[in-house]
Design a protein around this nucleic acid. Structure first.
Length: 520
RNA sequence: UGCGCGGUAGGGCAGUGGUAGCCCGCCUGGCUCAUAACCAGGAGGUCGUCGGUUCAAAUCCGACCUGCGCAACCA
């Protein structure tokens, strides 16, 4: 029945008590590129993103802004949605945890955990800091000379006790460790896996999973005095979107998810709590959780007080969406922390995009336009140089798949640009501007081979730069249904004699407008 | 404090036992088809410090210095 391989990928859902920042944009772009790559490779893809709208912080921010939590959520969720459009994200769904479908799914998963004996009512007690909105262990607090007990941030704490439901996380320690052992790529990259394993080995305590202090959340089934702890609610979004618990829904077959792409700060929630919840509820586990790194502005963490916070809309606007997408994914090894700066972005745009690829396409295609009446030349016998560069281009899908297997987006792009660099060397070495007069057949062959290389490069690059890569394919007259990875190679070569549109630059150089204009 | 990761050319990084590499930037030359782009060559490094193993160490071992991450309710 299932004839097409499926691939389900998610971002974390964003907390909309503020507007999106560059970290949200980075995660969305990376996830989108992976989703697009899988589609290019013939998979039936389901790509989900959305917003996590419950919790006390939403209430507090809303109160400060003089609105209800619902109004705040509506307003900011719309901004997150708009960011997706601005960044050319191809998500198939956008989930909001305040939607009825999500309440139903969360309550169902709760009931199943409860039925399995993993939920019990007790009371939660500890030193609570109102300012930090957090409980602290006794040994994290200190009593100062003034007799006031304070938490690690220096805020006063008070002893607080409230009724709470608990999840029997302690019962899952062994099963979680067994999971990490038997499925080494469940947590990636490895640094994160090590951290989580040592954390779990050190022992797990039961988890408080409900709150009574506020009501902006999903009511606990059978006890509406409680709302679910935000993480129980938030994590469940990934199954909600597949129609859970209704297995007849059109997207039910996507579960289990192939990979959750998340920031490294929330790896624990996704690799300890989430699989434990699912084990308890008797539902299959996601195959992988990948914690990406953070982006720093010139090595500094973004913060409002430093004044280096940059709005993703402004960035996309200023540099171009595809240019920004390329920069993030090429510059930063996926999984590690990275840096960005105006200079670094401009360097990538000009060197890789405008000079290396854009100019190669422009110089070769304008030769076709000016000397061959804009028709794809018929290649003659292939020289060794022709065959070598063609083979490199034809091998790109395999190289790209190998890199993407480990979600190494930066490596994938490096492989593609290695071929671009080879093509520039090839082109210079063949000197078509000389052959034009001395050897018309070689002239045509070189241009044909170059066009084929650009075709392969553009097909793969669509994952990262859908619009620009599409323009290259347009310039080469590649039909819309011939743009998958499988179309790279000998079986789908450009047809000799085909008329091509007039070449146009795809990647303009970034020219510094004014010093004051500098964005980063 | 415990555990983990990193410290290699001006900047960003690869390299895990056998003549130090890549990209950007810089200098020189070539070419002139092209988006002042492209190609070739060059300058530039005591591979964090000290000690050890080895015929041979950036690469293995130990100590130390230094930056960073994780150490339960924090989206």
């Amino acid at each position: 029945m299932a004839d097409k391989k499926t691939f389900y990928i998610t971002t974390a859902i964003s907390y909309p008590n503020g507007t999106p920042h560059i970290g949200h944009a980075y995660e969305l772009i990376a996830t989108d590129a992976i989703a697009r790559f899988k589609r290019l490779d013939g998979y039936e893809v389901f790509f989900l993103t959305g917003t996590d709208e419950h919790g006390q912080k939403m209430l507090q921010t809303a109160a400060r802004e003089g609105m209800t939590a619902r109004e705040l959520a509506d307003r900011n969720a719309a901004v997150f949605r708009r960011m997706g459009q601005a960044l050319d994200a191809s998500n198939d769904d956008f989930i909001r945890t305040t939607e009825p479908r999500h309440h139903a799914a969360s309550q169902e998963i709760w009931r199943r955990m409860e039925a399995n004996g993993d939920i019990y009512l007790d009371s939660y007690a500890g030193w609570y800091s109102v300012r930090d909105e957090a409980f602290f262990a006794e040994n994290e607090t200190t009593v100062g000379g003034d007799g006031v007990r304070r938490g690690p941030t220096g805020a006063p704490v008070e002893w607080l006790e409230e009724e709470s439901y608990f999840f029997r996380l302690s019962a899952y320690q062994d099963r979680l460790l067994a999971l990490y052992e038997s499925q080494p790529t469940f947590i990636q990259p490895d640094e994160r896996r090590n951290e989580i394993m040592s954390f779990v080995r050190s022992g797990l305590k039961d988890l408080s999973v409900s709150r009574t202090a506020f009501d902006w959340g999903i009511p606990v089934p059978g006890n509406p005095k409680h709302v679910m702890y935000v993480w129980v609610d938030a994590l469940t979004n990934y199954v909600t979107a597949t129609g859970y618990p209704d297995t007849t829904q059109p997207r039910a077959h996507f579960w289990p998810a192939d990979v959750h792409i998340i920031g490294k700060d929330i790896v624990r929630f996704h690799t300890v709590y989430w699989p434990a919840f699912l084990m308890s509820a008797g539902y299959p586990l996601p195959r992988q959780v990948f914690g990406h790194g953070f982006l720093f502005n010139r090595g500094e963490k973004m913060s409002k007080s430093v004044g280096n916070v940059i709005d993703p809309f402004t960035l996309a606007d200023h540099y171009g969406v595809d240019q920004l997408r390329y920069f993030f994914l090429r510059e930063v090894p996926f999984g590690q922390d990275g840096n960005y700066s105006h200079e670094a972005i401009v360097a990538r745009i000009n060197a890789d995009l405008a000079n290396d690829l854009g100019n190669l396409a422009q110089r070769s295609l304008s030769m076709v336009a000016k000397n061959l009446e804009g028709r794809v030349p018929a290649p003659g016998a292939l020289s060794e140089a022709d065959a070598t560069i063609l083979a490199a281009a034809d091998a790109l899908p395999q190289k790209a798949r190998a890199a993407m297997e480990g979600l190494a987006l930066h490596t994938m792009l490096a492989e593609v640009w290695k071929v671009v660099a080879d093509a520039n060397r090839y082109f210079a070495g063949e000197e078509p501007w000389v052959k034009r007069k001395t050897d018309p057949e070689r002239f045509g062959t070189v241009l044909y081979v170059t066009a084929e290389v650009i075709r392969a490069v553009a097909i793969v690059a669509q994952a990262v730069m859908p619009t620009s890569a599409g323009k290259f394919l347009d310039l080469l007259g590649v039909p819309a249904d011939q743009r998958m990875l499988e179309h790279v190679g000998a079986a789908h070569r450009l047809a000799a004699g085909a008329m091509l549109p007039a070449p146009q630059p795809v990647f303009p150089r970034y020219v510094e407008a004014e010093k004051s204009e500098a964005t980063a």
